[in-house]
Amino acid sequence: MPFPPSLARALASLYVSDAEFERLGDLHYQDAGHGYDAFGLHPDFVALGELVAGPLYDRWFRVISRGHGSIPEIGPAVIAGNHSGNIPIDAAMIWMDVLRNTSPPRVPRAIADHFVPSLPWVGTLFARSGMIGGSRGNTRALLESGELLLIFPEGTPGIIKPWNERFQLRPFRVGHAELAIRYSAPIIPVGVIGAEEQLPLLHVSKRLGKPLGVPEVPIPAVPVPLPVRYRIFYGEPIPVHEEFSPEDADDPDVVRIVAGRVQAAVDRLLKQGLAERKGVFL
């Protein structure tokens, strides 16, 4: 960002408590010098991210979550979940939820499509709070240094779904399974309920996307996201690191089977959450 970390910290202090700042002092990240990691993450900008995402998490979407015990305290891991909502608020809510409910705090490194880092301002703000572009080299480097990745295996087709197809998972891609096997990381399935209904989709424009540098632009039926209740449920870790050797990552059948297991686990969490909830806004 064009402003220094000290200003980010000052801005963040409008919302983030002293205790939370102290907690963020234990944040696991690899300082490459000058307080930033090689990908651009800085703890003060993580706090700034809390200023942006916190009010949405606490007041607008009133997030309920459970199963944080599945997230390892240290070491590489991959969180894989369903993607929806036309804009990636679900990623921001998982980011916030993991940050708040892990001790010492962990920042999930959200893997974004290639176009995201090339978006002015947005790409930089996201990078400062932990997002990275979805290239093989980036994910490898992060898992090797014991980071926690957040991947949406449905990809862009998942986030832009018509209303009548909500909660229907798009076929999971296999990259997350391959990464987890190759770098001996458990996969933690996560189901997000609520995002599907936050911005009902009116139209998807490819024409508008071109000048903006994005593949498609969703045109929602409402101007702002509806205050739906978010539910984030983490499932039992899938211990691919115990079941497979890193060499198995080269076997297309193995990665396909693992990706299928992850999709089934996410689907179960979604069905469970939908059965439990009493209403979209409750």
């Binding site: 290639h114 176009f115 572009g133 290239s135 080299g137 480097a141």
Partner: peptide, 8 residues
């Protein structure tokens, strides 16, 4: 944009 940040 689609290349890794960490350059090997």
């Amino acid at each position: 944009r689609d290349l890794p940040v960490l350059i090997g």
